[in-house]
C-alpha cells in the first residue's frame, strides 16, 4: 500500500499563506476568514463535502477567484501582484477527451509560456517533456491520442504537464476520483515519491480512509477551516461532524485510524451498534463516537452532562 512515512517539513517561510481570506465568485462567498499556512515539503489533503470550497481553495492559491477580504501569498508574493508558477492537475472529468491532441502535445502545453510566440517547442523543451514522460512511464504513449489511454495513464499525462516546468508547488483536484483502486494506489505512490523529492503537494479528495488517512497532513473544510493537522489529530467524531454534518465514528485498529464513512454503520436508526464494534470488546479495537442519545450538541441535555 502507500507508505505512510511522516517526514520532516522544512522550516522557514511558508510556501502558501492564506491570511483571513474571504473569497468566492461573482459576489457569492464560498470561503470565509480562512487562515492557512503550507510549508515547503508539505503533502496536504483537502477534505470536505461537495460545495465546501475545496476547489475554491485551490483556485484561490492559483489566483483565480475574487478575493473579498484578506490575502493569498504564494512564495511570499501576493497572488494579486503576480500569478505564481504552480503545477495544476485538473479533475479528469473536466477534460474534453474528444479534442484532437496527443499525449506529447498535452505534456508540452505545460511549457507554453516559456517562449509563448515561438510556434514550435525548442529541442530542449521536447527533451524535458520526454524525460518527464519517461519518469512517469508514459513515454511510449507519446504519439497516442489522449482518449486511447487507461485512467491511470490519463492521470499521468496531466501530471506530466504539471511537472514539466518543474514547479515547487503542485495542486491536484481530486486525482483519485473516478479511477479504480489500482490506479488510485499508483497515483498516490507517484505523489508520495514526488513529495519525497521535495515537491510541495496540495490535493483535494473525497476518500477519507483510502487517501486522506495516508497523508501526512489533512485540512477539513466546510466554508471555513474546521481542522488542520495529521489524520490522527484531525479525525475525531467532533471534527467530522462539523465538516460533514453527519455522525462518523472513528475506529482505531492496530495503529490505523479508520473513519466509518456511512453514518448508518454505527447504531442504525438509533439501535445499539453491532457486536464487533462494541466498545472495549477487543483490546486492539477502539471506537470513538458520539453516544447515539447525545447526537447533536443542541440535543444534549444539561443533566446528562452533569451525570458524566
Amino acid at each position: 500500500m502507500l507508505h505512510p512515512v511522516p517526514h520532516e517539513a522544512a522550516s522557514g517561510e511558508p510556501i502558501v499563506q492564506l491570511k483571513h481570506l474571504t473569497c468566492g465568485y461573482e459576489g457569492a462567498t464560498v470561503l470565509s476568514d480562512v487562515g492557512l499556512g503550507i510549508m515547503p515539503g508539505d503533502f496536504v489533503g483537502l477534505l470536505g463535502p461537495s460545495g465546501s470550497g475545496k476547489t475554491t481553495l485551490l483556485r484561490a492559491i492559483l489566483g483565480a477567484v475574487s478575493v473579498y477580504r484578506g490575502q493569498v501569498l504564494v512564495y511570499g508574493t501576493p497572488t494579486t501582484e503576480r500569478r505564481p508558477r504552480i503545477g495544476y492537475v485538473p479533475q479528469l472529468e473536466t477534460i474534453d477527451w474528444n479534442f484532437p491532441v496527443t499525449v506529447e502535445e498535452v505534456v508540452l502545453m505545460g511549457r507554453t509560456m516559456d517562449k509563448p510566440l515561438l510556434p514550435w517547442y525548442p529541442r530542449r523543451e521536447r527533451l524535458l517533456a520526454h524525460e518527464m514522460m519517461e519518469r512517469l512511464g508514459i513515454a511510449e504513449l507519446a504519439k497516442r491520442h489522449i482518449r486511447d489511454l487507461s485512467g491511470g495513464q490519463q492521470q499521468r499525462v496531466f501530471l506530466a504537464r504539471a511537472l514539466v516546468s518543474s514547479p515547487r508547488l503542485l495542486l491536484l483536484d481530486e486525482p483519485t476520483t473516478g479511477v479504480d483502486i489500482k490506479t488510485r494506489d499508483d497515483v498516490m505512490h507517484l505523489l508520495h515519491d514526488l513529495n519525497h523529492q521535495g515537491v510541495t503537494i496540495i490535493m483535494t479528495t473525497h476518500e477519507i480512509n483510502a487517501v486522506a488517512a495516508h497523508l501526512p497532513s489533512v485540512v477539513c473544510l466546510n466554508g471555513r477551516i474546521v481542522a488542520h493537522g495529521s489524520p490522527a489529530e484531525v479525525f475525531t467524531p467532533e471534527t467530522l461532524r462539523l465538516t460533514y454534518g453527519a455522525e462518523m465514528p472513528v475506529i482505531h485498529y492496530q495503529g490505523m485510524t479508520l473513519v466509518a464513512e456511512s453514518p448508518h454503520f454505527f447504531g442504525r436508526n438509533g439501535n445499539p451498534p453491532d457486536p464487533p464494534l462494541q466498545r472495549g470488546a477487543r483490546a486492539d479495537l477502539r471506537v470513538e463516537a458520539v453516544e447515539p442519545e447525545t447526537v447533536g450538541v443542541e440535543a444534549r441535555r444539561p443533566e446528562e452532562g452533569k451525570r458524566v
Binding site: G110, T112, P116
Partner: peptide, 23 residues
Amino acid sequence: LFFGYKLFLFATFDPEVARFYGV
C-alpha cells in the same frame, strides 16, 4: 495563428487551466 500556435492550442483545449498556466 502561426505565432500564437501554442497559446491558441492551450486556450482552446482548456481555457480555464490555460489561465492557471499563465496563458
